[in-house]
Amino acid sequence: MGTTTIMTTTGATEWVLRGQHLTVGYGRRAVFHDLTFTVAQGQILGIVGPNGSGKSTLLKTMLGLLAPLAGRVERRPGTTISYVPQRERIDVIVPVTALEVVEMGLAARAGAMHRAGSADRTAALAALGLLGIEPLGRQLFRNLSTGQQQRVLLARALAGAPDVLVLDEPTVGMDLASEAAMLEFLHDINRSRGVTIVLVTHLLPIVLNLATTVMVMASGTVLQGPADDVLQEDTLTSLYGVAVRLGTVAGRRTLVVDRGAPRHV
C-alpha cells in the first residue's frame, strides 16, 4: 500500500487541476502516498480501478471534498468544475422536477440571493435539450428511469458551463444503449466544447474507448499516463493479477480476461 508508480508523465502545460505529493486517505489511514498528477485542459482523464481501490477517495480529494493527509490540490485560478455524483447518492425524497434539478446547477454559480428567472429556465431547458431530454423537464426527478436521472444530473452539471466535468461512475445501472449514448455524448462535448473530463469508473472498457489519459489504481499502486501507453496487456495483467487480453471489435477496443492463462503473471 502507498506506493505510486508514475509510468509516464503527461507533459501538459495548460493544466486545470493538479495535485502534488498527495497522501490520500481517511483519518490516519492512507490509501496512497506521494501521488502527483496533472489534469490538462481538454483531456479526458479516466480513473479506473476495482472496487475499494481508492478511486472515490482520490476523487473527493481532487474536488476538495476531502482534505489530503499531505500535499496539495490546486485548481487553475478561474477554473469552474461541475460534479456529477453517482445517481444513487441523490435522495429522491425531494419532490423536484428535472428542470428544477438543472436550475440548481445555475443557482450554484449565482449569488446567494439569486432567484431563478426566465433566463435560468431557458438555460436549463437548453441543457436538457443538449442531452435530448427537454420533454422530461416537468417530470419529477424521482419518477425518471436510471438513465434519464443520470442525464438530468449531467445536464445540471453542464448548465453551469464548466471548464471541467467530473463524473463518478456515470454509467452504473444503465442499459447498454444508454451507456453507449452517454459515452458518445461525453466524447462529443469534449471535442466540440473543449470541456475537460475526469471520469471515475470501475469498468476498464469505458476508459479504453473514451479516455486520453488514465490513472489505473489497484493494490495501492497508481499507474498514470497516456491511455495508449498505460492500457497494455502486460501492465493490466500485472496490476489486476489476471491475464488480460485486449482486442478490437467493430472499431471499439475490448478487454477480456484469459482464463486459460496463469492467474498471476
Binding site: I81, Y83, R89, V94, V101, G105, A108, A112
Partner: peptide, 18 residues
C-alpha cells in the same frame, strides 16, 4: 431558498461549484 435547497439536495455538488 435556493442556497438552502442546494445544500439539502446535493451538498457535494454545490461545494464543488463553489
Amino acid at each position: 431558498a435556493q442556497r438552502f435547497l442546494l445544500v439539502t439536495f446535493d451538498a457535494q455538488a454545490a461545494k464543488v461549484a463553489g
